[in-house]
Design a protein around this nucleic acid. Structure first.
Length: 570
RNA sequence: UGGCCGGUAGUUCAAUUGGCAGAACGUCGGACUUUGGCUCCGGAUGUUGCAGGUUCGAAUCCUGCCCGGCCAGCCA
């Protein structure tokens, strides 16, 4: 029984076409009411948000039907595969909140069975050893409009094929000298059915089977068979494997399977705006140093998203919400972000942090001590989150964005002569502004109203804005990483630029702020913890020792919208 | 060029299988608010790719066309 992580929140939405199929199979008793899925990554890279969709789908469908979902590594090609990837993938799946049923399995566990089945096909006259090289095979496959040509080796005797296959396995031939091909139809309209390759010779050590094998099964020859061996009922994969389905079924039809043949169903892979998920492009970003490793918070890798502060629950919410269909589309990254905000709004502790410090001197400080401990609510969304103390003093930092010399309409924050509320403290009026030689604002001279400690003025006067602040004498210095879209084009490589996604790489996708001022409580944030900097957004404390926060996502920002609109119209 | 798969608000998906085209996110407006956040309420956005046909009735069925994706690795 698959473990279903805390209820992926979604309203009773109608069943998608896959769940609909599963239900049909269950009522018709196709697999005796059994449901078994699998997640089959190749251990040659890191998991990304696109994989998350497949993971959620497979695990959730199994759980919904009291079935099981295994993790199977599709390690049929030793080139580039590594145990470090299997470990990373297992860790990422666990982080997402899923626990594979039973032992983790590997396609390489079935190499011997696969070999036996290949011999079976040879004996049935359904497979043969071809001596042609890769170029020749490619050249004689034909194209979309013309049939392929039969290999001159296509009609070898069963005994000769059996012997040659044995010799291939025994290492008698160099790489590429021979292949085993299924004997199907060289004029089939589906190119994949034109005598597909089942085994290729690779004198390469495999990270699990070592040097036991020098012939390795291709994807098509391994996948369906692995599904069948494990008892998979519904083999879910992405749309580009649609054309493989006839071959998937063909192999299964010819073999003495232990049970019902699994069925393959294809769904659209997940694409997100302003990012890339192809292994090649991700590699380029990392290799060229455009990002800082596979866990760079700008990357859509699961490791990147984790470091960025995305709650796994939000990713699951997102996957469940987008559903599954057969249309190839691009999802707006904003939708994912909205699920991140929803989760974080409920869980994140509120703190105050100033990103672009502007000094405020309180000229009418009348307290005996140069500090007053103010009580602040940790999370207004969570009554159990409690309060904390925030030091307040005669010298403060506020954000430069919260002050304007000549405020335009709809700017509610601080300006000369204007009054605002300091969050969890008092009303504050700006009396005077000190400007530098070149006109920049150096510091503000303000007075606070000691009677407004409850956030309200006894005389009933109102303020339009509440702003955040940090006591300058107690502030903790920190580095804050602000992230923007990794690619400026919504679909990188879609317009102009010769279709190269890297052309729209956003060089200012990372802005480091090294002089951020934090309230002291933030120095006690746990590594990996995500907090809300009030009015700014959600920020994740880095795993490392230094005080570094990554901006997970900003808050919805109406003022930013107003400014954007103003810029567009002017 | 052939085959297969798709096409419904800006985006992603629905539409009880032929019966009043909806939801979420985004957007706009309002209420509330010690976060321009959250929450709540409301508005706008559609020639259902196009054209014909069947039908009392078509997003749904039929025909033709248009557009997009996938397929000619010994990658997965």
């Amino acid at each position: 029984m698959s473990s279903l992580p805390d209820a992926v929140c979604d309203d009773a939405r109608p069943l998608d076409f896959i769940r609909e199929q599963v239900r049909r199979d269950n009522t018709e008793g196709t697999f005796g009411g059994r449901v078994q899925t699998r997640f089959p990554p190749e251990p040659n890279g890191f998991l990304h948000i696109g994989h998350a969709k497949a993971i959620c789908l497979n695990f959730e469908i199994a759980a919904e039907n009291s079935g099981i979902c295994r993790l199977r590594f599709d390690d049929t090609n030793p080139e580039g595969e590594d145990a470090s990837f299997t470990e990373a993938i297992c860790a990422d799946i666990a982080w997402l909140g899923y626990e594979p049923d039973g032992e983790v399995v590997y396609a390489s566990d079935y190499f011997e069975t696969l070999y036996g089945w290949a011999q079976h096909l040879v004996r049935e006259g359904l497979a043969y050893v071809d001596d042609q090289n890769a170029e020749t095979i490619s050249a004689t496959r034909g194209d979309f409009t013309t049939a392929g040509a039969n290999s001159p080796w296509r009609d070898r005797s069963v005994s000769e094929n059996l012997r040659l296959l044995e010799e291939m396995r025994a290492g008698c031939y160099p790489d590429g000298a021979k292949v085993l091909r299924a004997r199907i139809d060289m004029s089939h309209p589906n190119m994949l059915m034109r005598d597909p390759v089942m085994y290729r010779i690779r004198h390469l050590s495999h990270f699990r089977s070592g040097d036991n094998w020098c012939i390795y099964p291709t994807y098509d020859w391994a996948h369906g068979q692995s599904d069948a061996i494990e008892g998979v009922t519904h083999s879910l994969c992405s749309l580009e494997f649609d054309a493989h389905r006839p071959l998937y079924d063909w192999y299964l039809q010819q073999l003495p399977l232990p049970g019902d043949p699994p069925r393959q169903y294809e769904f659209a892979r997940l694409n997100l705006t302003h990012t890339v998920t192809s292994k090649r492009q991700l590699h380029t970003l990392v290799d060229e140093g455009l990002v800082d490793g596979w866990d760079d918070p700008r990357l859509p890798t699961l490791r990147g998203l984790r470091r960025r502060g995305y709650p796994p629950e939000a990713i699951r919410d997102f996957c469940s919400h987008i559903g599954v269909a057969r249309v190839n589309g691009v999802h707006e990254i904003e939708l994912l972000e909205s699920f991140v905000r929803t989760r974080l709004n409920r869980s994140a502790q509120r703190r105050m942090a100033v990103l672009h410090p502007l000094e405020v001197v309180i000229t009418n400080w009348d307290q005996p001590e140069p500090v007053e401990q103010r009580q602040a609510v940790n999370n207004p969304e969570d009554a159990n989150a409690g309060n904390r103390l925030v030091p307040f003093g005669p010298r403060l930092w506020i954000d430069r964005d919260d002050f304007m010399m000549e405020p335009p309409g709809k700017f509610y924050r601080l300006a000369p002569g204007r009054e605002v509320r300091l969050r969890a403290a008092y009303f504050l009026r700006c009396d005077d502004v000190e400007t530098g030689a070149d006109g920049q604002i150096v510091r503000l001279f303000c007075s606070y109203d000691p009677l407004t400690g409850q956030g309200k003025a006894p005389d009933g006067r109102k303020v339009r804005a509440t702003i955040h602040w940090v006591s300058a004498d107690h502030a903790v210095d920190a580095t804050v990483a602000l992230y923007d879209r990794l690619f400026s084009e919504s679909v990188p490589g879609s317009n102009g630029s010769g279709g190269d996604p890297l052309e729209s790489y956003n060089p200012s996708s990372l802005k480091l702020i090294t002089d951020a001022k934090l309230e002291p409580e933030l120095s006690r944030a746990e590594p990996g913890e995500v907090v809300q900097f009030e009015r700014l957004g959600y920020f994740a404390r880095d795993i490392g020792k230094q005080l570094l926060f990554h901006r997970t996502v900003g808050l919805r920002d109406e003022w930013a919208n107003i400014q954007k609109r103003r810029n567009q119209t002017s």
